[in-house]
Structures are given as structure tokens and as C-alpha cells.
Design a protein around this nucleic acid. Structure first.
Length: 443
RNA sequence: GCGACCGUAGUUCAGCUGGUAGAACACUCGGUUGUGAUCCGAGACGUCGCGGGUUCGAGCCCCGUCGGUCGCCCCA
């Protein structure tokens, strides 16, 4: 190629798109291991998998409406054709920003064909148009489990969710030294309290302040509460409730509160087999999407709660009332997979799985030996090993290739008929004769 | 949506008070004949994010713009 021609070629320098993470093969391998692990635990509890399209119609997304709707709207990404002209009337499509709305729509749509209680898990990407920052993405994975039933859903499911989550999170490779905590509350308690205190205005603002209490000073907290129309006595009564160390000590003033406390203590009791501190009541958890009505969950790194929740969820009385004329209560929880994964990745705690899934690199000594090499590779694959047939070239390059890719064993087929196969362990540098029919990693 | 900081080879960065670019790592090849990580040698790779301005002259100064990082908001 001439220099002229070379200069004319315009290079569009690739740049990462903020908030849309992508990984090198070695990281992606760990990510896949995580997915497999989560899937395995979910399925061990009998949850089945579904996958829904990346998009929902805008109508479906908007049907949720309510007070949460407006805020959520701003975060929704729209998918449309580049050359769409004004007259096109096709339905506008929205990339889903969670997996709960798709689940609601799915359940309503396939109501006749589903078996209830419907227990499903879903591990897909979701999209949110926010400013990315540490632990916060615009495209990320969530791993959701939900149980949905018709008319009534037994309360024990509220306890099953955190039990499953604890099992998943505490055993993910790389999480060994992490101290996580699932915090549980019940929205009925605060709702009942607000009713009792006759708080009717600025409820969402007040709950937000309560939620952020841990991050602010006492002075600021009281000041913002006063600014939102509360009086000192109300603030004190709220304080009594949300700081109760023991559920039995929570004062209650009406049925809502009593029910909420009863539910919360039932759920906690069901979880008493978990290690101390794994699951705790925390009445200051009031955030989360507005459709939660009872139990709510939030999960944090105990040492760094400010990283944000890595797993949240709760109970909703009526998941799909906007899509079907049935009462479908449910309870679910969602692992913020990408947030969690990225945190463990950044700390360098992911297991080192190498850049390749291959167990063995089959050396190609020369073109003449290709047949032997590929036959041996096939044989070993049939025995369950992952075997990459080398691209050939100098032996030293082939070995260097295996080393760079982190392939643990290099297999030398006989260089001439009548000679032995040999296997080299790249970690110990040990090399010895081997039989393709009998060799194992422990040899 | 608001605020702070940043933008030079594939990557991490250096570049003196403005005089037209360097290092390390990574990459390719070589150090003969069947064996990696080290070592040695050679090579390739940048219109210094983009656009304008000031200047005899700008990677360095000014303005704009786009992108990135981190806070806030909100959330997984």
C-alpha cells in the first residue's frame, strides 16, 4: 500500500461508551461463572427462567403510571429507526429499565398458560439513562427472582427471597471475604405511622429524608424534617420507630403498623437459620419503587453501605393490575449483578480463570502431523477436555501462546510415528509421556 | 438535569517560563535445527479528542464543542 493511500484512511478511534461496560475475555469468563452460579441456586429452589424482549411498548412502560412514573420516564431509553420519517406511526419502543414491568406484562399476557404460584428468574440487561459513576451504569445486568400468585401470596415467600439471595451472594467466587447484609423492613409500618401522625403532605420527600438519615447529621435531619412541615413531636415519634433495635420494642399505634410489625417479625424468624447479622430489620429502608407495599429489602456491603444497594426488592400487592383484571400479588428481589460484579472486579477479587476456556493446547509440530494432532484433540474433547488445536508455527511461539492465554497444559503429539505423546504442565514445567485415552489433569 | 476535575502512541503516563513529540509496558520479528515466562537486539505505532482564536510559531495560552472520571439527584 502506498503512503498516500495509507494517509487517506480515516481511523475512527474507538472509545468506550460511558456506562456501557464491556470486559476482556478473562473478566467475561468470571462473569459467566457468576451467571451459572446464580442460575444454579435459583433453579435449586425451583424457579424457572424466562427471557423477555429488550423492548416494551411505551404504553406498557407508562401504564405503571402513579407517582413513580414521572421520575422513571426520564431514565427510559427509546429505540427508534434512524431514518424514521415524521409520518411513521409505529409504536414507540422503550428499552426496559427493570425486569418487573416486563414480568407484569408477561404474566398478564400469558396468564392462561402459566402455573401459579409462578416462580421465575430472569437475568437480562436493563437500561437507565442516568449519569454513570462508580457502581452505576446505563446498561447493566439484573438477576431477578419473583413469585406471583393469584389473589393471595403466602408470607413465607417473603422469607424465601432473602434466604435465596443470601445463599447466592455469600457463595459467589470472589465474595468470600465480603461482609454483606440484607436489611429488611415493611412499608406498612411507616405508612401506618404516617397515618397515625396525620402526615399527609410531602410524604415522598419525608421518606427520602428518613432514608438518607444515616448519611446526614442529626441537625440537618431535623432541619429538613421541620422544613417539610413536621413538628418536633412527630419527629420524635418517627425516631422511636425507626431506631428500635428490637422488633418487639417498636411502638405501634394502629392496625397497619401492627400488621407490618407482625409480618416483619415472621419473616425474620423464618430467616433465623442464617448467620448472625446476615439479615436484619432496618426500619429506615423506605426507598425503592413505589409499588412495594409490604416487605422491602435492601442489601449492602456492611463496610461500605454508601456504595449503594446491591440487591433490592419487596412485595407488591398487585403487580399487574394495569394489564389484567386479576389480583396478582407478588414478592421479588433483584441482584444488581453489574454493580456487584464490578465492585469485586475492581478489588481484584475475581478468580483468575485465564484468558481461555481451553484446558489443553494441542501443539501442531508440523503440517505433516496435523492429522495426528487433530485426532488426538478430538479424542481428548470426547473425554471432556477443552482442547484448542494450535495454529502452528514455531514450537516456541506455540508455547508462548499457551502461556499468554493461560492454558494450563500443552500436549505434544508424537513428532514422528512410533514416539510417545507428551504433556507439559505449564505451571510446573513438568513434561512427561501420556496416553490420550488415559491422561488426566492429576497425572 | 446540576457541579468539580480531566482528554498526548494499544495501555499508563512524561513533555521544562509556548519553538512542530518521548518513556515504560503491550505488540511484531530475530537471537538456526522439537519447548513458554527472563535476557539481548531490531521494528511498527501519534494531524497531542475535535473546531476556532491569540502568536513569526501551540500539546502547552483563550473560547467553544464533544467525550471521560467523580460527586449531587435518583437508583441495582
Amino acid at each position: 500500500m502506498s503512503d498516500n493511500k495509507k494517509q487517506k484512511r480515516r481511523i475512527y478511534k474507538p472509545k468506550s461508551i460511558s456506562g456501557f461496560p464491556e470486559w476482556l475475555p478473562e473478566i467475561r469468563r468470571a462473569e459467566q461463572v457468576w451467571f451459572e452460579h446464580i442460575q444454579k441456586v435459583f433453579e435449586s429452589y425451583g424457579f424457572c427462567n424466562i427471557e423477555t424482549p429488550s423492548v416494551e411498548t411505551l404504553d406498557t412502560i407508562n401504564a405503571k403510571g402513579g407517582d413513580g412514573g414521572a421520575d422513571v420516564d426520564k431514565e427510559v431509553y427509546i429505540l427508534e429507526r434512524l431514518h424514521k420519517d415524521e409520518s411513521d406511526k409505529e409504536a414507540r419502543l422503550a428499552l426496559h429499565f427493570d425486569q418487573t414491568i416486563p414480568l407484569a406484562r408477561y404474566t398478564a399476557q400469558h396468564f392462561n398458560d402459566l402455573v401459579f404460584p409462578f416462580k421465575r428468574y430472569q437475568m437480562q440487561r436493563v437500561w437507565r439513562g442516568e449519569r454513570p459513576q462508580a457502581g452505576r451504569f446505563r446498561e447493566f445486568y439484573q438477576c431477578d427472582i419473583d413469585v406471583i400468585n393469584v389473589d393471595q401470596l403466602p408470607l413465607h415467600f417473603d422469607a424465601e427471597m432473602p434466604a435465596i439471595i443470601w445463599e447466592v451472594l455469600s457463595s459467589l467466587p470472589g465474595m468470600e471475604n465480603e461482609n454483606i447484609q440484607i436489611r429488611i423492613s415493611n412499608k406498612a409500618i411507616l405508612i401506618g405511622l404516617f397515618q397515625h401522625l396525620e402526615i399527609k403532605n410531602n410524604i415522598s420527600e419525608i421518606t427520602r429524608i428518613i432514608d438518607k438519615k444515616a448519611k446526614t447529621t442529626e441537625e440537618q435531619y431535623v432541619k429538613s424534617m421541620l422544613e417539610n412541615g413536621l413538628n418536633v413531636k412527630q419527629i420524635e415519634q418517627i425516631e422511636d420507630v425507626i431506631t428500635s433495635k428490637n422488633i418487639k420494642d417498636i411502638p405501634y399505634y394502629n392496625n397497619d403498623m401492627e400488621d407490618g410489625i407482625a409480618e416483619l417479625s415472621f419473616v425474620l424468624e423464618q430467616l433465623s437459620h442464617l448467620p448472625e447479622g446476615a439479615v436484619v430489620a432496618d426500619l429506615s429502608i423506605v426507598r425503592g419503587l413505589d409499588y412495594y407495599t409490604g416487605t422491602v429489602y435492601e442489601t449492602v456491603f456492611n463496610k461500605d453501605p454508601s456504595y449503594g444497594s446491591i440487591c433490592s426488592g419487596g412485595r407488591y400487592d398487585d403487580l399487574a393490575s394495569n394489564y389484567i383484571n386479576k389480583k396478582l400479588p407478588g414478592v421479588g428481589i433483584s441482584i444488581g449483578f453489574s454493580r456487584l460484579f464490578d465492585c469485586i472486579r475492581a478489588k481484584g477479587q475475581l478468580p483468575d480463570l485465564g484468558k481461555s476456556p481451553a484446558d489443553i493446547l494441542m501443539i501442531l509440530p508440523s503440517e505433516k502431523r496435523r492429522k495426528t494432532a487433530s485426532q488426538t484433540a478430538r479424542l481428548l474433547r470426547n473425554r471432556g477436555y477443552n482442547v484448542e488445536l494450535s495454529h502452528g508455527g514455531k514450537i516456541k511461539r506455540q508455547l508462548a501462546y499457551a502461556q499468554k492465554k493461560g492454558i494450563a497444559y500443552v500436549w505434544f503429539p508424537p513428532f514422528e510415528d512410533g514416539l510417545d505423546h507428551e504433556v507439559k504442565n505449564m505451571n510446573t514445567s513438568e513434561q512427561k509421556p501420556a496416553s490420550p485415552n488415559e491422561w488426566s489433569k492429576n497425572d
